[in-house]
């Protein structure tokens, strides 16, 4: 195993465990949100290992730093306490969920493990994900989708103001 692979596997393990923590360990909404924060944070580091600095830091800044804070804010405002849970002992959904989950896992695993065992180094250059490289591509080749996205965001802003304000 090369150092690159070890770094990736450690980060991937944390990310997978965190994303499992979002839905599997307990039913506390705040803890789930926290696991999601951890997942986003580690995902940023996986982007770093791929040389995508701008994408990684944006991931941490926007998702881990801003959106999840709002999520936590809402969860705490609503005071979502999980009440006593009723357990169904004979539920066909449980084994079915295990089966489908395992099936998808095997499917993805068999596809990924081959590529992963062959790859020892990320194929990208150092300049691949720097702000300069991303900016050059974004404002030349992909300027049309970029502008359309900005219009979409503008519509989102106007829409949220319309929904939130009763009187304008």
């Amino acid at each position: 195993m090369t150092p690159n692979q070890i770094v990736f596997l450690v980060l991937a393990f944390i990310a997978v465990m965190a994303s499992a923590g979002v839905v599997v360990f307990g039913a506390n909404a705040v803890r789930s949100a926290l696991f999601l924060v951890l997942n986003f944070f580690v995902l940023g580091f996986i982007y770093f290992t791929l040389g995508a600095q701008l994408l990684g830091i944006t991931q941490i800044m926007v998702y881990a730093g801003a959106i999840m804070v709002l999520f936590l804010f809402v969860i705490m405002m609503l005071q979502l306490h999980h009440g006593p849970q009723l357990k169904k002992y004979q539920d066909a959904k449980r084994p079915l969920a295990w089966l489908i989950g395992l099936g998808i896992f095997c499917l993805v695993f068999t596809q990924v493990i081959q590529k992963l065992s062959m790859t020892s180094q990320s194929p990208v250059t150092d300049e691949y994900g720097t702000p300069k490289a991303v900016g050059l591509v974004l404002y030349s080749t992909y300027s049309w989708p970029f502008e359309v996205t900005s219009v979409l965001l503008l519509i989102g802003v106007v829409g949220s103001i319309l929904l939130a304000k009763r009187r304008i």
Binding site: L54, M61, V69, T130, P131
Partner: peptide, 25 residues
Amino acid sequence: NVDIGILYVLAISSLGVYGVVLAGY
């Protein structure tokens, strides 16, 4: 000395809220 120096500052400072929020919660 990364290419994203100032963005790093913004990202880390945006994580600063978690300590306070979690302590409060």
